[in-house]
Structure formats: structure tokens, C-alpha cells
Nucleic acid binder design. Sequence first.
DNA 1: TACATACAC
DNA 2: AATGGTGTATGTA
Length: 582
Amino acid sequence: MKEREVRRTWMHIDMDMFYAAVEIRDNPSLKKKPVAVGDNTMITTTNYIARKYGVKSAMPGFIGRKLCPHLVFIKPNYPKYRQASDQFKRILAIYDPKLESVGLDEANLDLTDYLVDNKMDNDLGKIFIAQKIREQIFMDMGMTASAGIACNKMLAKICSELNKPNGQTYMYNDEVEILKFMMDLPVRKIPGVGKVNEHILSGLNIYSCKDLVEKATEVYVTFTEYAFQFLVKSALGMARVMHEKEEGVVAQRSMGVSCTFRPIHRYNQFREKLFRLAAELESRAHQNKVMGKTLVLEFKSFKFETKIKSMTFPHYLYSQNQFKKYGILLLNQAWPIEAIRLMGLRLSNMRDRRKDKGVKVCPEVQINDADLIEPPGGPDGNQQETQDQGDGGNNQEEDKIVFSDTMHHPSNDQNNANLDDEGIEDPEIEQKHDEENMKHAKEKLFKQKYGPGEKKKKKIKGEKEILSENSRSIQSWNNVPRFHMDKIMGKSEKEKRQERVQKILKKQNQRGIESFMNESDKYLSKSDHFVKQFEELSKIKNKNDGINNCRQIRNKLKKKEERQQKDIDSGMFGVPKSFKPI
DNA sequence: TACATACAC
DNA sequence: AATGGTGTATGTA
């Protein structure tokens, strides 16, 4: 099985405190000071001096200042970081032209081919190459990077964190070593397991990957099949080992803008925000030469609760007037809205604006006074009409949109200034398309309110159903497990599941996980207990519960760590030699 | 498809 | 007093 493949070599490389490093490089007088890139509301990066004070990224700036009064704040300069990032990736591309990266400061490289080609496919060779790459980065850029080298992306990423800054960690391509390492690892270290899933797992008394493996049955009945697979495989150190995407091709699937502000209440204020977002979104869509059929409007309340309204239109949208006009429909749908702190507008279901042949593209629309009327009695004011049928929108096959590998990276060439003029038809048709969109929207709103009409148009037999190729896809190892909220299974289902667990376990055929095999009996005897636990878990909905629970967990974890430390001191668990700094 | 949410940088 | 912006993913009805 590919996920067990141990013969490939991945390197995860991560620039140390990237934004801060760029700023310090450009202003060496900062070198000995605590530095935070960001502002009073949010810190994006800090240097290691600031970290000593507990000032970390994603922390509000005012807290940072409290922790460290001398903290030097620097306003982020993203174009500069992007430039540095390009340089970083150019260096890496020598070793793997297909390199994958999320964000500006890190990348995943499959070094296998390079190592084989250079006859260095052995432990020393791998360590040497990582060292060499980091040196090259330092020489060319004056900044340090940390790296992890292992047989798959997930392990490489975990390893890259172990000797930061300016260090690297090599994990032997050896199943026993890998297992030994994973068993002690807290589940939170699995990329994709965040706060929430850590919390849920702790409810099952699962803290380490070892717990995760030993309590696999609980995990199995608690999470979905897919999440179970993800968690247990991850805990065993298994992850993808091959690139998933073609070289240099990234299909960005949505594009959006959002903005946080002081509380607003009035409809006019909402509309004004929407209009600004629409203008900004137009500029982005234009730069990237994309259009989209689905518009998503997002609100965040002061309780940090997020609501979204979305609608898919028969025609592709691209202009601010379209975003405004159709955005208002979404706004009205959500209206009335409690005070909010953030609004966002996102375009998805996208395709390349230049490849519009045979696609319904919405021509420019007008915003009329009628569009600007405040809905009088809440959200209902604007839907009276009709249910007619037919959708007219027959699904075209979508081209993938191709961007450079950096996200939020608008393409540079400016030769698209007249895009707006290209597809314009005569005004009458324009009008018709707008009407079609509006009619479509009204029908949807009607259906939403009064339920679907009596009949649905039947699919003609033999008519090909073309699903958007992009509609669902899997990215990297970052497949996030989800809590399965509503399934306590009936007995036969249970048994089936147990069989599957057994099968999976047999497949693993790993040393050190025999206990894993006996889980089904354990589950049967403990099922009542488990169901109770499950019910308790489902109740944890508000933040305070979560916080209290987290506190308890933290204390437990602390104690556990202390116990572990004792064990280590007494020589019961050795730190695997592969994790000693190089 | 529409919506809610988790997660990552 | 005060917690960002952008994008991707899965779950479910």
C-alpha cells in the first residue's frame, strides 16, 4: 500500500520566523530586540527574543505588549515577503520542481529522485542534502530555515518542528523507529488535528498516538469512516507519499475578501460594506482573470459566530455591479442581522475568464433604485413571484483555473485590461441574462421559503450528468477528521464495523499493536459506559464548557508529561536516536 | 446546493 | 477595550 511506502524521501522545510526574519535582515538594528510583525490587533510573526516573553503569532498585539513592554511592532509588508518567498522557492525547485507549499514560508519536497540521480539515496546523503539546502538559503537570503526529513509528508512536517530554529531532524525510514516515535506523540501534533478534535479525543481519554491506536474502536464508532482512517493511519505514521498535483498547477477554487470593523446595525451600513467588498472582489477577480457562478456572503457576530448565505447562479459573475446586485439578494435573505464584526464576500465555482466559450457569462448589470430599497418587514419583502420551472443552466464541464503555486498571488501580466469588453453582447441580451439570474434567484428564495414545488423536472434518461470535477477534492495530508455527531449504531451495524476494524488491523500487520486487535471485545463490555461518555461529549457546546474542559485536560496532560519525564529519567523510554539534533 | 465548521498559515 | 484575512477541507440535510 502506498501509504506504508517507506522508500521515498520527503523534506519539509520551513523558514524560521519568516516575516520577522525578513524585517531583521533589512534592519539589523532589530536583531537584538523583541520583534513582532503585526499590529495592535494581531501579531503574525515574532522573533525568538519576543517568544521568550511568551509573545507568539496569532496573539493580539495589545497582549503582546503587556507581556513584553519593549516589543517592537513592525507593519507587515507582504509584497516584500512574497518576493523573499519566491527566492526561497526558486532555490527549492532545483531539488524538486514539483514542490508543494501552503503559505509563503514552507514547502514540501519529494527528494527521492534527486537523491537517486545523485547517488545519495542513503541516510547520510539525505542529511547532507537537507543541510546543503539550508546552507544555500542562508547564503543567498541571509535567513535560516529548519527542516524535517522523513519517508512521507506528514512525518517530515512533524520533524521540521523538532529542531527549530536553524536545525533539522532526520527520521530513519524504518517502521519500528517511526512507530516508536509516533506512540509518544500527542495527537495534537498530527497536522489536521486541531483544538476541537484534540478536545473530542480527550473525551475518549485519548491523548497520545498510542492511545489513539489502542482505543481505535472507540474512535471508529465516534468518527466517520474517513476520519477514523485518517486518525489511525496518522497515529501509525502513515501518510501520503506521492505528489498529488501536476507540476506547478494549482486550481484555486474560490476567491474572497473580508473585513473586520466596529459594530454595525443598520441595513444601509451592511449594504455599504457589501459594496466595498464587491469592488475589492472585482479587482481580485480581474487580476486573476476568473469568474464564478457561486457567491457567498459571510457574517461574523460579536460572539464570533459565523453565518453564511450563498447562491449559485446560471451565469458566471465577475464585475462589482454583479457582486453588488446579487450580493444584495443574499444580504436580504439574511436580514435582519444582529450586530456583526466582520463581513466577507467570496466567489466560488470558478473558471478562467478567458475560456468563456460555450459558457454562460453574465454581462454587466445595472443597479436600480429598486435594488437599493431596505427590506421593510425583514427578509420577506422581496419575494413574491412565482414558481415556474426549468433551470436552463445545463452544466458545462469546468476548466481548472491555473494559478502560480503561491496563494493570493495575482498574476503579473497586465494584458487583460480590456477583458470587460470582450464578451459583451447587445444590450437586449444583456438584459435578458440579468433577468434570468434574477428569476433564478427568486425561484430559489421562493423554494426556500415555501418548499419545492410539486414536481421536479425529471432527468432525461441517457442525459449525461457532468459533475464539476472540482466539487470535492482532497488536499495533501491535510484531511481533517470530523466528529460524527449523530450515530450510535444498531447492533448489526456495530458488528459490521467491528469486522472492518479487524480487517484494517490485519492489514496494518504492525509490531507493537496487538492490543489493537482485541478492541472489539472491549467495546462490547464497555459499550454502556461509552454511550454515556458520548452523550456527555455531545453536550459540550458552549465555549465555557470547552474552556473548563480544556483546563482539566491541560492539567491532566501536565501530570502525564511529568510522569513521562520520570519514565524517561529512569531510562524506561529512550528518546530514539534518530531524533537527536544533527 | 446550501450551510456550518474545523484547520492551516 | 481590544483576537485578521484567505483558502481548503469534511459533514449533513
